[in-house]
Design a protein around this nucleic acid. Structure first.
Lengths: 349, 349
DNA sequence: GTGAAAGCGCTAACAT
DNA sequence: ATGTTAGCGCTTTCAC
């Protein structure tokens, strides 16, 4: 054993806290300068491969890894991505969140999460994350003020909206072609012979809701069908239940209900069947949007517009790679087509 | 306008990057030292209220806020909590995650998230988070190696398992009393006159699953009922469907199925009703665990054991407050009672 | 390609 | 209660 009996640390050993070895330790062991160690762990730096190998070996031996906080302090990036979500009640969003996390983790990026119900809370979360120097921000929350987007651009942080339209702001977006989705539903209902459509809306100011409604309504008009009766369901199951009840009281009673998401559609279905004893699709058709896994369960077997979730996530991350660190880059907008999935909550054409 | 025509920054102005004002700027404006500024923004520091007010005013004017990364570098805490999750398919977990995030945000703590399917991935995520100096770790993933827990203790990071039993490790835990939950189900089924119980298991090595099964089985034995036939459902809907099909082939056929979570119970229900035309609860009783919102929907109306989610979250955060920064503190284990919710998937007693 | 020196923005130790 | 000094661990000029 190699004792060092008098090693009380010397004069400057102010009992270094529990943290691990530093680049200085590695430099000493490898016989190079600290800069060289740093360069070894900086992707595109120019360095002699042999030296690099020696440094890596030393790092391995000491079980050294770069302190990301110290690195961030000077390099002004953090290898961290912020994920701002509006809520996780609709199962579409946890699936999206998990998809992002898995893929970001694979790229060795950390994920900082925030849930925010309203536009104010979104701004707060964004600002908090900017202070932590996130490299980029993915926003699935429904609203974000232009002021907050500006803060991001000023900080050099690219923002991508996931399933949110972006008007006049500097942010990019990736979303399902919600208008086309709404149109497809109108076409399908028309083809099946339904004649009195209704629409159960999500949140009034969510672009997803507006686009789905616009596509649906426009296409109905093009096919000379009446404008749909509209009730709000607030994107929740209970909201769908209530909307269904209200729709049943209207005259003439609708014969087909398109809901802005699957959860509301399930509320509608349950209410029609269990509270009013109606048969779907014979008495009434019900269509949703998202194609969450539950939509395919036999209890619902819901006709719906599938969002290509994984594709949307991939596209978002590709965009992130392109845009990261270049806050001046012009915003990019990508529309991913959805797909109408026919099930038994609508008649066959 | 107050021009400063020759202010090219002077010799040392190496064009400071886009970041905002620093504590030095505030110190200058307020006429105090940087330490005083720092103390103003450090909760329990001793400082003259009048001075503090002046500093705050200066900070406000410059729109200054502490750089958390620089602070972390020296203070060795980050005001960030790590949340390690096993997956978000079971809607119980997104709800838990959202609950934690909302409350942590209120305390002005950031949340770093990680999803990890297996014990290896959990360890990787934990280690990555430790490098980012998270102050504490909340783990809802099903497994974590003792080595990873040790890493945390060495780093001074308290770990709390949420709904996971902890054996022989230094971590604390908060969980539903799963054993009691299983026992309550056995009592209820016995009281309703069911005589041939079955159990659909979750993941074999999850403590939630083991405890629920143990409580159920033990209580059945105490009541002189046969040991339940066991089929695995892997905590998924599809797993529940398959398990139901297998159970229907066994002789004697079970008349009551207790599932380790609601999602599997819904798979069982759907399969019994739609694939086999059976009636629940007349031909067969089905019981779940969790009481996710869907369990109350009329399509399922599932008898289940409710987990007091919000209570569990509060308890976890209280524990966090007590334990944070004190990695030597002995681990604490809290058991929260569940509650059997009676619905129509079981007969009345 | 490599090293020396300067400092990112902050807080902790020590002195007063 | 406040100021001074040192330094967290790293990357980045700037020389060579």
């Amino acid at each position: 054993m190699n004792d060092a009996p008098f090693d009380d640390g010397g004069p400057k050993s102010r009992r270094r806290s529990v943290s691990g070895p530093t680049s200085a330790d590695v430099a000493r062991l490898a016989g190079v300068s600290r800069s060289t160690v740093s360069r070894t762990f900086t992707p595109g730096a120019s360095i002699d491969p042999v030296t690099a190998a020696r440094v890596r070996a030393a790092a391995e031996e000491l079980r050294y890894s770069v302190d990301p906080l110290a690195r961030s302090l000077i390099s002004r990036r953090s290898d961290t991505v912020g994920l701002v979500m509006g809520g996780l009640e609709n199962p579409f969003y946890p699936a999206v969140a998990a998809g992002f996390m898995e893929r970001l983790q694979q790229r060795d990026l950390r994920v900082m999460c925030h849930v925010a119900a309203d536009i104010e809370a979104v701004a707060d979360g964004v600002r908090a994350m900017l202070r932590y120097r996130v490299d980029a921000l993915i926003v699935t929350a429904s609203g974000m003020s232009n002021a907050a987007v500006d803060d991001c651009r000023r900080a050099g942080v690219t923002v991508i909206f996931f399933n949110r339209a972006v008007t006049l702001s500097a942010a990019s977006s990736v979303q399902t072609d919600n208008v086309a989705g709404g149109r497809a539903v109108a076409d399908h209902l028309a083809a099946c012979g339904y004649a009195r459509p209704a629409y159960v809306a999500g949140l009034a100011n969510a672009s997803t809701n507006r686009d789905r409604q616009a596509g649906f309504t426009d296409r109905l008009a093009e096919r000379r069908l009446p404008a749909p009766r509209v009730e709000s369901g607030g994107y929740t199951y209970e909201g769908g239940c209530d909307a269904a009840t209200r729709l049943l009281r209207t005259k003439p009673r609708p014969d087909a209900i398109f809901c802005a998401n699957d959860i509301m559609a399930m509320g509608v279905l349950d209410t029609l069947r269990h509270a009013h004893g109606l048969s779907v699709p014979d008495d009434m058709a019900v269509v949703g949007f998202d194609d969450v896994p539950m939509a395919g369960w036999p209890s619902f077997d819901l006709t719906t517009v599938r969002q290509r979730r994984n594709r949307m996530i991939e596209v978002t991350l590709d965009l992130l790679d392109d845009l990261r660190g270049d806050a001046e880059a012009p915003p990019v907008h990508r529309l991913i087509p959805g797909r109408l999935i026919l099930r038994s909550s609508t008649r066959s054409p």
